[in-house]
Amino acid sequence: MSLNEVYITRTSHYFPNQPVGNEEMEEYLGYINGKPSKSRRIVLRNNGITNRYYALEKGGKVTHTNAQLTAEAIKELFKDDPEGFKSVDVLACGTSSPDQIMPSHAVMVHGWLPELGKLEVVSPSGVCCAGMHALKYAYMAVKTGDAQHAIATGSERFSASLVAHQFEDEVHKLEELEQNPYISFDKEFLRWMLSDGASAFLLSNKPNPEGLSLKVEWIEGLSYADDMEPCMYCGAEKLEDGTLKSYLEFTHEELGEKSIMSIKQDVKLLSPNIVPLGGRPLPELFERRGLNPDDITWYCPHMSSNFFRDKIYEEHLKLGHHIPYEKWFVNLSYVGNVGAASVYLMVDELLHSGKLKKGDKIFLLVPESSRFSYMYALLTVV
């Protein structure tokens, strides 16, 4: 069977509302126990984020669902070509923050887009790599000829799980027990890291007749879950032995008292592992794919925090892969950490920046701390 070449022919993004600066965050997310956070400034100083987006009004009222954000990004793909909706065969939507456990995220997105008509819909689950899994599914559908045109998306709406009232039951329980009425750093840490937004790619078996397209050379992934315990999790509690206790095993009261449905991250496990594990497969991958680091024109590494910037750079040096900072294209500081959408947002901004020329090679690296998974991809500008 002959395989098609696959091209990203359009990209788009959608952010809810206006950007939120560092000093405004608690006006949207609220004050836990009515008090300003003690950790906010420390986390912000390290993560280097100055603006992010929330699908909230001040005071915490929700303005958009995740599915709505994603649908708006998809509409942007076709704002100048409304008939283009009819040619799409596959919709693949990745997120780590779906609006509900079921129905799946992608079918909820489809529900906001009757213009698409009947088509195949896929919802990869996971965390930051979920967007790349959606991209790979769309890529393979076009590659094999099952689809001529496919949409892949990455999106997040973290803010709804970060608002203060999500933690009030836990704080009140701590007060009843006469303990320090502050939630753990593993829970509060992520309140100052995450952002809402969505981005979409249109994939085709032919490049644009005019203008630039991005040829997808390859996409690969790797999981370390066979020997790494969970690091980032939601809907569970981490036990002393490193295993997770499911939300299904807690009483209704315990779900609130322990903030079981909030996002948590084991920061002690994160820092020593997230960068080295991501670098470990690169020498073999580059050799097998015939990729020389010098051939990379633009490097788009997804980073949850600017704290990891120099660590990633130094890891490449250790591996003999020098990728100078002038080749990096990262927008973390002014869009925030948008999880599964982050790499999409980098590619989208880069494609519309005027910086690209035909022949440029764009290397993507997406880490996921949930149980340490990684996705890698190479795009060529054509």
Rank of each mutant, 00 (worst) to 15 (best):
V382E: 15
F201S: 05
E326Y: 13
W328C: 03
N208C: 12
M132P: 05
Y374A: 06
E314C: 15
S184F: 00
C129S: 15
R40F: 10
E23S: 15
N66P: 08
Y233K: 06
V163M: 08
F308C: 11
E27V: 03
N47I: 01
A138D: 07
E175W: 06
V88Q: 10
D360W: 02
S259K: 02
H322T: 06
E57R: 15
L69A: 05
G131W: 05
H172W: 01
M346D: 02
M193Q: 11
H64I: 08
S213D: 02
R371V: 07
R10N: 12
L364D: 02
E188I: 05
R40M: 15
G59D: 04
V142I: 02
L291S: 00
T251R: 05
K318M: 14
C128T: 06
E237C: 10
H321N: 12
Q18N: 14
P181N: 04
M303L: 14
Y325Q: 07
A147D: 13
Y325H: 10
L277D: 06
L255Q: 13
R191S: 11
S104G: 14
L177R: 15
A225R: 03
D99R: 01
S87Y: 02
Y31R: 14
L194K: 13
D89A: 06
T144N: 07
E83G: 13
S305T: 12
L345N: 07
M375A: 14
G354Y: 08
L239D: 04
M375Y: 06
I42W: 14
M303T: 01
Y7I: 00
A377M: 05
D186H: 14
S262D: 10
S369F: 06
N180K: 13
Y54L: 11
C93W: 00
Q148N: 10
E326N: 09
S353E: 12
A106E: 12
H165Q: 06
W112P: 01
G30R: 00
S123I: 02
F307R: 04
E5D: 15
D89P: 12
M232K: 00
G60M: 04
D294V: 00
Q179H: 02
L356C: 01
G154M: 06
M102P: 00
I274Y: 03
I49C: 04
P230V: 08
V275M: 14
L332I: 03
N273I: 03
